[in-house]
Amino acid sequence: MIWDWGFALEILPVLARAAVISIEATLIGFALAASLGLVLAVVRIAVPWTSWTISVLVELIRSTPLLIQIFFLYFVFPKFGVVLDAFTAGVLAIGIHYAAYCSEVYRAGFDNIHRGQWEASIALNLSSWTTFRDIIIPQAIPPIVPALGNYLVALFKETPLLSAIAVMELMQTAKIIGSETFRYTEPITLVGLFFLAMSLVSAALIRSLEGLLNRRTTR
């Protein structure tokens, strides 16, 4: 018997509990990515001399593997006296990695704002803080929501990497079930199906959100 429904049902609750950890990691990681990304993008424009440094930093983060960055935070930080538990280190690494991607998305959003808006803000003597808060960000964010949503889905699919530093998320749980029972078929297939279902649902959500936002902005 290759596929055992009884066994699949038996491990389902265990996997469901682990899925909660995966989703937690996704949400915290994305909150970090979205906010840090916004800060990077704003600072890059508001403080011109940081622009070059930030673009090199973003390039560095984007061109090295997330797995190595997770290892780096988990193994190297303790050498400097900062001991992070696996979950914190993993989520921090994922958040920073995706912050680099998100900052590019925000930048595209800011670049799309008509130059007249910036000039009008200067003419009205608004501080750069007020300009961003009241003029630029409210216009720049809605069009980039779908792009950010795509990164949320991508980030969610990267959470299995946390299993490499033994965070008890879905993949790690599936692996443990596999090694305890020598049955890998059910746990790993279920994990795959779970990700597939979540991705399809969130892709549909993003698409409808996109439609909603388009309707609002093109009126």
Binding site: T159, S163, M171, K175, I188, G192, F195, S199, A203
Partner: peptide, 15 residues
């Protein structure tokens, strides 16, 4: 596109 690369890797390797 819907499942993560690591899951695919493990599926091919273990399942």
């Amino acid at each position: 596109r819907g499942t993560s690369a690591l899951v695919q890797l493990f599926w091919l390797f273990f399942v």
